[in-house]
Design a protein around this nucleic acid. Structure first.
Lengths: 109, 109
DNA sequence: TTTGTTTATTGCAATATTACGATTAATGTA
DNA sequence: TACATTAATCGTAATATTGCAATAAACAAA
């Protein structure tokens, strides 16, 4: 079907999955890493930095923006993207809680 | 296309994306949360616990197993699944490094 | 051996994702 | 105004994912 039955899961489970999904493509990982590295957030360069076509990069940026993880500011003809630190921190807390579940009880077999 | 151009990204970027992808579905998040909670790793119950059909759960378990995040032990007619703590810890380190990048320089616009 | 129980696999339909050419929109500059 | 530059959107093709019915496989017990 290709359609996740989100209504049968908790809000938290769906939230974790949505964040994870956006990290589930190497292009978006690369975009985020570049935004972290280039603090000047010059961003048309992403097309050159990563080897994908401009519409493709634009599409990935849109998804990241939609989740609130990045912000885009128009500066003349170009657009300046950067990490939204507040939302990134919130996301990090959600993901950390999931990743850091207690391992002590696990692994019985 | 639906095909990620993995060859144009670093091994780390692809690794992060692969881990994230498997967390990108709420059913797999729910399965993992249940395995963490039920330390006895009784596992046929996953079909009852989560509301999906048995073949669907089996398919999700296969993906988690393929990435090494869970282990399955045959016990009679049933199979006991549990978290692979060693690989989970390795995954956690990779993901943590990505999530915990320095936010100080970011957000210039 | 037959039967029941549990899990994996197969096959397929429905939907989602990825990528990009072509185009459009927005803005700066000559 | 006309032209150049940059980024977003549209349309579409190729591929991936999700879900499940049907079936097979593995095993235990009678």
């Amino acid at each position: 079907m290709g359609l996740a039955k989100t209504e049968m899961f908790t809000d938290l489970q769906n939230e974790i999955a949505l964040f994870a999904k956006v990290f589930g493509h190497p292009a978006r990982v690369a975009i985020l890493q570049h935004l972290f590295k280039i603090n000047n957030c010059i961003c048309g360069d992403l097309v050159n930095e990563i080897g994908l076509a401009q519409p493709t990069i634009s599409q990935h940026l849109k998804e990241l923006k939609h989740l609130g993880l990045i912000k885009g500011n128009v500066e003349g003809t170009s657009v300046c993207y950067c990490i939204d630190t507040v939302n990134w921190t919130k996301m990090k807390e959600v993901m950390s809680q999931f990743l850091n579940q207690d391992l002590n009880k696990s692994e019985c077999c």
